[in-house]
Design a protein around this nucleic acid. Structure first.
Lengths: 249, 249
DNA sequence: GGGGAGAGATGCCGC
DNA sequence: GCGGCATTTCTCCCC
């Protein structure tokens, strides 16, 4: 691990070059400017920021607020270090894209080998929600018999597909949070595709979500579709437990 | 600035508490585990990671690859430090969400005041593209007369709105990259809304984008809409210059 | 504060 | 590789 406080340009240059070639994780706190050119064009005037170069060549430039980086480059990027008269410049190139960070004052630089082979174990995605409905069709309505999940069509894939009590085809589009206009047009697209492909007319559409925006609900109704309030699995699990505990009093 | 290499639990706890209360930017490199509960549930087993706590209370946990954090909490989060028998635990709570990071070995911790009042100056967004078309209607077709931009409707806002040479209403939906099925359904929504609101039938729709997916193009055609190849401004500016330079030979 | 949509979105999966 | 789409999306803008 190399960790330098207020390094000279020469020291920082060496640490950077060595760290990049060794696939270290490199963190720099510095006063800098940044220019980006590629999918758009941008310039960020002088300020204190955090720069993070990952072993996979990803580079992130973070300002002191917000969860998104202000500038970045994803993997497969080539970094190079240059010197101006007074400063150090970090150029990162990838295809037609280029990020150029000019370091004007380096507060600290750290370069070190990090070990991590784990991946995130996650639950509660939209797919989990579809699975929950598939296994508990009563969440939609009595008599609903789902027969497929993630059904592929050229116009997108259907979350849950089945028959209702009267034998109509029934398409469920799940949203784990608020259903919006996009969710309704998505459902509409699937219903029309299935009607056309199977040459049938009795195809119903349902949006399953914890809530739906007023305009989306209106459009849903205009198109003869329905809404079912369904909470995604694991959503605010702790909060719900607490709430039901309170409800018992 | 406080910068400690391999700090003891006690030292790290002090730096963390002091840094959070002083609204410092805090960076930790550590072996850790992470649990998240809220909009989903997740667990991340032991590994070396980078933790970044911003002055606005945003917290990011980054693994050594990928441009996205593996766990995070946006602003308005309350952080607190606790001790287990052997380790330090950083709890971050916001509404019904909770992120808990257990620090098992701290490689370094840095806490410092950062100064930054600048915001990114950016060009080449979809709005810039709409503006370009508004000013150069020939990019769409001869006789196109745009009369409004960002027109608000309850079902979304229209990028560019105008009349064609024959006096039909013409709605343009811009996409700065590949137009997909969503872009077509979006356009369709606007056209239907305008037809209904104005009680007219002669409303045309056009997607302006550098390219469009085959399925989207088919759906566009099925609905009687058109596609115009338009490159967004500033997109790969450097690359294009180079290309046109090559073309001259 | 909610709705609607873009983003230099990124990431995942299926064909 | 492209297509289609979810994301603990985040962020911005307008009502």
């Amino acid at each position: 691990m190399e960790l330098l406080k207020q390094p000279s340009i020469e020291e920082a240059e060496e640490v950077l070059n060595r760290g990049i070639s060794k696939k270290h994780a490199i963190i720099i706190s510095a006063k800098c400017t940044a220019r980006y050119s590629g999918r758009a064009e941008s310039f960020l005037p002088t300020g204190d920021r955090i720069i993070f170069i990952k072993p996979d060549t990803t580079i992130l430039l973070h300002q002191i607020s917000g969860s998104q980086p202000v500038n970045w480059m994803p993997g497969e990027t080539i970094h190079s270090i240059h010197r101006t008269e007074k400063n150090l410049v970090l150029n990162s190139v990838r295809g037609g894209e280029k990020l150029s960070i000019e370091l004007q004052q380096i507060h600290f630089i750290n370069s070190m080998k990090l070990e991590d082979t784990e991946i995130l174990q996650s639950q509660g995605s939209e797919k989990d929600m579809a699975e929950m409905i598939y296994k508990n069709p009563l969440l939609i309505e009595k008599g609903f018999k789902p027969f497929s999940m993630e059904e592929q069509t050229k116009y997108g894939f259907i979350d849950v597909f089945g028959n209702d009590a009267k034998g109509n085809l029934l398409i469920i589009e799940c949203k784990r949070y608020n259903a919006d206009l996009g969710a309704v047009t998505q459902l509409r697209r699937y219903v029309e595709k299935i009607k056309k492909d199977k040459g049938v007319e009795n195809v119903r559409g349902i949006i399953a979500a914890p809530k739906i925006s007023p305009n989306a609900h209106k459009m849903l109704h205009d198109w003869g579709f329905d809404f079912r309030k369904v909470d995604p699995p694991k959503f605010f699990e702790e909060k719900k437990k607490k709430q039901s505990k309170l409800d018992n009093f």
